[in-house]
Design a protein around this nucleic acid. Structure first.
Lengths: 336, 336
DNA sequence: GGTCGCCGGTTAAACGTTTAACCAACCCGT
DNA sequence: ACGGGTTGGTTAAACGTTTAACCGGCGACC
């Protein structure tokens, strides 16, 4: 490959001059500038970023560590990160932690070897934050010493509750996600807060983020005793859809279902899922923006951004069915 | 960050010695070896790969260029590539071409600047193959000067036909993908070949890879005139599912549907899609293996591997319904 | 018209590695 | 006892950049 030296020789000029016109470090006379640029295109010169990084001590590479690329949540995030990173002049080294804390630290130390300018990190679980030799911004989970950008799960939960109320539901079942995950806990909290006084919690179960529902939940769904099931996840929403079908319950006529995440296929299942959309693209864009400013101004105060989510109403959640006179506890004087 | 020099000083030994024990270049006495290793862990030394690459002229980084990360086909592929690449000691720089040929070449030239050891490339469309300064293996599409690994779309097509025959179908509709894409053309060819003599092609339409079906196909599906629709894609299969539902046709009782790809959610739609699974993980693993050998032996003959696919039978395709005596064209003597 | 400052260019050092070339000491066989 | 091979270590050059330091010439200012 052509080196700076070759360009210099071809342009009849010193190697430093080529470097200068290349990055506009010093002013140059137009004629020599033209000669240099011509030589560059003629030789198809591409700067050696290894050499540049070595010399300048900074690199134009960002790292990205995610727990599991096949999680439908991530592709859109990764895409947004890659696109905005490249637009800002960074390339992206991606590593998959395989949902394993050990492989995750492995990945992060590797990132150190590659001398990335910074990394965007979606932590796999609860974690120690050994301090890394590069700035880190975490996405979706807060980690003590790091900048963070998360979706507003709390708001998401309350949006669900509001929607349920607006549709006229009274008794709802709740399938909440692993309590140990901050995001799941926040969704639950937001939902419960906005539900108090308006919605009655028929039952609640804590389930993993999966469409394979545990047996006791399946039997519960055979006779839900509520008009709406609020799910931790689009995946568990699909599980509920299945269970409902198995029980002969028509969705949404007899039972409404609400998911969370708006994964790409939530519009493909039948009925299409009413769910809460996470601002994946914005999450990614903000993450690289934060990282970029942190790289340039390491001393800045820690940032913590919370991005708004959005309820997308589709067919899986409909109006509450006319109450089958459900044990009229309060008799306001009507005939019984 | 700690440099080789620091380790050397801490261990009371020369910088070259440290390098030697680090990569086992020369034999060293056990005592000095221990001292060096201790110093390394004590200082938390991580080699500067930029410097190493600069010196050795080779890098431990691979590139990956894909048309669109949000395409459900890719995450599993990317994951497989990343995992096997890292196991082989490479990091992976990922770039999304945004389905745009221009951004794609942009990405590839950038890869040159990063001096990647080689790149794995899923080309966005029909293409010129300007020769790149690094080895390239393409996935899913053949490109003249490159090693290639593809799934056996031809076999996939014929598997579909065989399955249809086994289920007793006679008249089928075919929604084939863009003829300009080699993969789509192969699927079609494989299907038609295996179908001849056994299956009657009621109709065929060429559709884009999308679940939004063009209007004329929608009206066709309102009265399909066949017992099975073979789809170019899982996405279009979902489109067919929708149209069938709109037309009041029960799937699979009245109409069977077969997709292609086995995207992650094909098990989530209702009914779960019968489809053809592409060996995504194998594709990725083979791609990096090929690239690895090509990097080490540039002069080898070009490779072209075709990986077997697999039909996964789910609920969307069932037995052919008893023929409603469909205009008995051939009268074997029955009363007319 | 002499001097000062700027302008446009060059020279050379440095970044952190690897590795060829060199060297001292030691072991062994004669 | 002496020389040659081997063993375990060091010195220094090189990879392709950036950038500080240097320098000649030219225009401007007094």
């Amino acid at each position: 490959m052509a080196r700076l030296k070759d360009v210099a020789k071809a342009a009849g000029v010193s190697i430093a001059t080529v470097s200068n016109v290349l990055n506009g470090t010093k002013t140059t006379t137009p004629v020599v500038q033209r000669r240099v640029l011509e030589a560059i295109t003629a030789l198809g010169y591409q700067p050696n970023l290894h050499a540049r990084s070595l010399r300048t001590g900074q690199s134009r590479t960002l790292g990205l560590v995610v727990p599991d690329l096949t999680n439908p949540y991530f592709p859109a995030l990764v895409q947004a990160i890659e696109t905005t990173a490249r637009a800002a002049g960074y390339a992206l080294i991606v590593m998959d932690a395989g949902n394993d804390a050990e492989r995750e630290t492995e990945a992060l130390t590797l990132m150190a070897s590659y001398r990335v300018a910074g990394v965007i990190w979606v932590p796999v679980g609860e974690n120690h934050a050994p301090t890394w030799p590069f700035p880190v911004v975490t996405v979706d989970r807060a980690v003590p010493g790091c900048d963070t950008v998360v979706a507003d799960h709390l708001q998401g939960g309350s949006l669900v509750a509001q929607h349920a109320i607006a549709l006229g539901h009274r008794r709802v079942g709740l399938l909440s996600g692993p309590r140990s995950l901050a995001s799941a806990a926040l969704r639950r909290a937001g939902f419960l807060r906005a539900a108090t006084g308006q919605l009655e919690l028929a039952w609640e179960h804590e389930v993993p983020f999966s469409s394979e529902l545990p047996p006791h939940v399946q039997v519960r769904l055979a006779e839900p005793g509520c008009s709406l099931v609020v799910c931790a996840n689009d995946a568990v929403a699909v599980g509920v859809l299945r269970a409902a079908r198995a029980a002969g319950l028509r969705v949404p006529d007899e039972l409404s279902v609400i998911g969370f995440d708006d994964v790409p296929w939530s519009d493909f299942v039948d009925p299409a899922l009413t769910t809460v959309r996470q601002p994946l693209a914005a999450l990614g864009a903000v993450a690289v923006a934060m990282l970029h400013t942190r790289i340039n101004q390491p001393a800045l105060a820690l940032q913590h951004q919370i991005l708004p989510v959005e309820l997308v109403a589709r067919r899986s959640a409909g109006k509450a069915p006319a109450e089958p006179a459900p044990v009229p506890a309060a008799r306001p004087g009507g005939q019984s």
